[in-house]
Simulated assay, not measured.
Amino acid sequence: MTKKNETGNTFAGQSVTDPGRRNLLKVTGAGIAALSVGVLATQHAFAQSPPIQLGDKWDKTFAKSDQVDHQKVSFKNRYGITLAADLYQPKNAHGKLAALAISGPFGAVKEQSSGLYAQTMAERGFVTLAFDPSYTGESGGTPRDVASPDINTEDFSAAVDYLGLLPFVDRERIGIIGICGWGGMALNAVAVDKRVKAVVASTMYDITRVISKGYNDSVTLKQRTQTLEQLSQQRWVDAEKGTPAYQAPYNDLKGGEAQFLVDYHNYYRTPRGYHPRAVNSGNAWTVTTPLSFINMPILTYIAEISPRPVLFIHGEKAHSRYFSETAYAAAAEPKELMIIPGANHTDLYDQMAVIPFDKLTAFFKQHLVATSPA
C-alpha cells in the first residue's frame, strides 16, 4: 500500500506559555500535559473502585442511531479485571459478521470518541465493541484512573476474546481500531495477538514515547532521570499513606496555552465531548502512572504486525502527526498512511465530516474476508 495525501510535518504550538503548565512540563520531563498528567494534588475523588453496574441509560456524547442495536456488556481480561463495554450490532443482520474492538483516546471513555466510531461502523455492517480500559470509566480495577502499557494492551486482546465467543461473530474476521493513545496500544496488541486480521490507528499517540522522551523527543537523559527520581520518591509517599496521590487536572484554560491544549479543552471540557467519568474531563491519573510508560516502549515489535495490514490516519495539522509518520516508517508492508488535509488532532475524535469512515469501511471489508460460509 502507499501513502495518501502526505505532506511535510506541521506541528501545532510546541511552547506552553502558561506558568503552571511550564512547571508541569518541567516536573514530568515528558510533555504529558496534553494527556491530563499534572503535578501532585489532593486525594482523587474516585480513589475507591465502584462495583461494575451497567445500566440502560444513554449517556453518550453522540446521538443514538436507529440503525443499530446497542447493549451494555462486561467481560474479564487476563488479569481478572472486569471491563465495561458497549456492544453495537447492525439491525436485522444475519449470519456471522466481521467485528471490531475499539478504544481510545487515552484518558477518554466509551461514551466519547470510541463509542462514536463503534456505532458508526456498526451502521456499516460490523459488530463493534467500544470498551473502557482497566481502572477507568465503568470498568473495574483499583486504584482508579491508573494506566499500564501491559494491562491496557491486554484489554484489547480481552475484547477480542469477548467478540470471538459471540455466536454471531466470525472469529476469523476481527479487527481493531485504536484512537489517540489507544492507537499505540492497538498496534502493540496486534503485534502479539495473531488472531487480529487488520488494525487502524487513528490520530495515534505513542504514549510510551511521549512520556519518556517528550514531544518531538526533546527530553534529555538528565531530565528523564530527574523525573524518575521524583516519581520514585512519590512511591514512598503513596506507600506510607496506603493510597496513591493524583495529578492535578489541567483542562481549564487560563490563557496563553498552546493551540493543541486549547483543542483538548474544546473537546473534553465543553458539551462537545465532556463526560464525567473521563480522566481528561477534569479528573486525573495517578502521579506514578508515567513510571511503566517510561520504561516500556510499546512499538518495539510493530514490524511483526505484518503480513496483516495496518492503516494509519492522521490530521495534516495535528501536533501529534509525527507519531504516525515514524510508526508508519517502522511498520512492514502491507501498510498505509492517510493524511487528512487541514485536520488537527482532535478533529479525528468526533468530526463526522473529517473522520474517513468510507476509508475505514473499505479497509476492513477488504481485509476481514470470510474464509468459510457464514
Results as ranks from 00 to 15, higher is better:
Gly256Phe: 11
Leu35Trp: 11
Thr225Ser: 10
Tyr162Pro: 05
Thr153Arg: 12
Ser232Asp: 14
Phe323Thr: 01
His367Leu: 05
Lys110Phe: 03
Gly242Cys: 14
Asp238Arg: 01
Glu325Trp: 02
Ala34Gly: 15
Ala353Val: 04
Val16Arg: 10
Tyr274Gly: 00
Ile102Gly: 03
Ala159Phe: 02
Gln247Trp: 01
Met352Ile: 05
Gly255His: 10
Pro356Asp: 08
Arg21Gly: 13
Gly13Ala: 10
Pro290Glu: 09
Pro105Gly: 09
Glu229Val: 08
Phe131Arg: 01
Val287Glu: 13
Asn295Met: 13
Gly164Pro: 01
Leu100Trp: 07
Tyr250Arg: 11
Pro249Lys: 12
Arg209Val: 01
Pro334Met: 12
Gln230Met: 11
Ala343Arg: 03
Leu165Trp: 01
Arg277Val: 10
Ile298Ser: 14
Pro133Lys: 08
His345Glu: 08
Asp56His: 12
Gly55Pro: 06
Glu336Val: 02
Ala45Ser: 10
Val287Ala: 06
Arg144Thr: 05
Gly183Gln: 05
Ile32Cys: 15
Ala201Phe: 09
Ser232Leu: 12
Asn5Ile: 01
Phe46Thr: 09
Thr243Val: 11
Tyr301Ala: 02
Ala122Glu: 07
Val190Ile: 11
Thr286Gln: 11
Gly178Lys: 03
Glu336Ile: 00
Lys197Pro: 02
Ala12Leu: 13
Asp217Pro: 00
Gln48Phe: 10
Tyr88Asp: 06
Ala34Asn: 15
Gly55Thr: 04
Leu291Phe: 04
Gly141Trp: 05
Gln14Ala: 12
Arg209His: 14
Ala239Leu: 10
Trp236Lys: 11
Val39Tyr: 06
His44Gly: 15
Ser372Phe: 08
Val200Tyr: 00
Ser324His: 03
Thr326Cys: 00
Ile298Leu: 09
Leu166Asp: 05
Lys222Tyr: 08
His319Gly: 03
Arg195Ala: 07
Asp59Tyr: 08
Val287Lys: 00
Met121Asn: 05
Val210Ser: 03
Ala159Cys: 07
Gly184His: 03
Glu336Arg: 11
Val279Phe: 05
Leu311Arg: 01
Asp193Met: 08
Tyr322Val: 13
His367Glu: 03
Glu138Tyr: 15
Thr208Leu: 00
Glu138His: 13
Ala258Met: 09
Asn280Phe: 07
Leu166Cys: 07
Gly137Phe: 04
Ser134His: 09
Leu221Gln: 10
Gln223Cys: 00
Pro51Met: 04
Gly141His: 10
Val279Cys: 09
Val190Thr: 14
Asn266Tyr: 01
Arg22Trp: 04
Tyr349Lys: 02
Phe126Gly: 07
Ile355Lys: 02
Tyr268Met: 06
Ile339Met: 12
Arg171His: 14
Thr120Ile: 11
Ala63Gly: 07
Tyr328Asp: 01
Lys60Trp: 04
Val37Thr: 09
Asn77Phe: 08
Ser74Ala: 12
Ile355Trp: 03
Pro249Arg: 02
Asp350Val: 09
Gly95Pro: 10
Gly13Trp: 04
Leu116Glu: 08
Val190Arg: 00
Lys91Cys: 11
Gly164Gln: 08
Ala186Ile: 09
Asp206Ile: 05
Gln71Arg: 12
Ile294Ala: 03
Ile151Leu: 06
Gly104Leu: 13
Pro249Thr: 14
Phe106Asp: 00
Leu35Tyr: 14
Thr203Glu: 11
Gly107Ile: 04
Phe312His: 04
Leu299Glu: 15
Trp182Cys: 12
Glu123Ser: 11
Val127Glu: 06
Arg209Asn: 12
His345Pro: 06
Leu35Glu: 15
Asp238Ser: 10
Ala101Gln: 02
Gln112Lys: 03
Lys365Ser: 08
